[in-house]
Design a protein around this nucleic acid. Sequence first.
DNA 1: TAGACCATGTAACATGTTACATGATTTG
DNA 2: CAAATCATGTAACATGTTACATGGTCTA
Lengths: 205, 205
Amino acid sequence: MSLPHAILTALLEKPSSGLELTRRFDRSIGYFWSATHQQIYRELGRLEAEGHIRALPAEQPARGQRKSYEVLPAGRAELARWTAAPQDPRPHRDPLLLRLRASAVVGTAGLREDLLRHLDLHRRQLAEYEEIRRRDFPPGRDAPEDRLRHLVLRAGIDLETFWTQWLDRALAEFDEMGEAQVTDGAGRADGAGDTSARAPEDSAS
Amino acid sequence: MSLPHAILTALLEKPSSGLELTRRFDRSIGYFWSATHQQIYRELGRLEAEGHIRALPAEQPARGQRKSYEVLPAGRAELARWTAAPQDPRPHRDPLLLRLRASAVVGTAGLREDLLRHLDLHRRQLAEYEEIRRRDFPPGRDAPEDRLRHLVLRAGIDLETFWTQWLDRALAEFDEMGEAQVTDGAGRADGAGDTSARAPEDSAS
DNA sequence: TAGACCATGTAACATGTTACATGATTTG
DNA sequence: CAAATCATGTAACATGTTACATGGTCTA
């Protein structure tokens, strides 16, 4: 239920064509709500059908011609409604944590390299956010809109900081485990294995 | 591509029926890969069809009868393969950050209460994780599997810590903005509004 | 024996992903 | 004018969500 509202926000900030939106989703908005161009075109169609946006009049016809959209009053009202309505936090879904947990059962083979790769990616993302911060939020601006957007950016910075720190620690643990490491993996995929590998968390009642 | 692997991990830790899995997904595994019972039953069916798991023989017939599953060698091998294979981090999707950004354009009405509510929810989750940590990871255990699972738990703890801190700060900002607050919202949904509300991040290139 | 809950499922739909198609514009 | 790239889309599929259905077991 969020993609249309992400698009409405982006269009209110600046009327755009589908491709422009796609590019902006690769930069700013997409940092916390990503979308592919297929999703965006599909959603633009729906939003137009619902009367929330309209194509800017510029006598452009069919395929291959760019088409810009702007938000209509009904769209703005819908966005305001959605923003004000309470919403529960959505549950996390993180494959990397899942793989780590799986590795406690089937072995850590291959994982370390990918942790390193992720660490690098998160460091780059962090650097990118900090560059944006330097550029767009110099000390002393405090229009409410700037404060709100700065707050969002700080969430991104703090999240990436968390990941880099956590991955550092994870890698340190991997190194400490050293030889004692569970490198089993497919080695005994013959299934004669123990099923005693219960995870502690499940011990709860 | 992760749900089947989450289920394989859970079943390796302990063979279970669909409902038992559902409950465990509400507790431990589900903290970083949630799933409803419908998803779980659908996926159990597929995993069985693929020969990755099998129902434990216990002459239980049709509907309404519990059916336990265990992982077969092929399933364990598939899990090991998946765990070792590199995977890119998936992009974030966070409606709350989106709403905050939208509020820079359509007003902050209603948001503060929901931030408070989220703060409360994250504090509770944090307390729950710390309770699990006290119970299951007393100092001095260092079997590799425990270390790996502890690492995962710490990611949960650190993430919830991040959210509580960030929400604290966000609420402080809201209070500072005070009267100057953008409480507009539907107030001028007549659409005569400014479209000059460009977000700084978009100024790139 | 009626109602609550346990346990497994079906169906319909919404959202997200991947692969491909098509016309327009630019550039060598 | 051929090839690359821009811009908009279609189709098929995978995943996730919501609402409901069905039979079994327990308890007042």
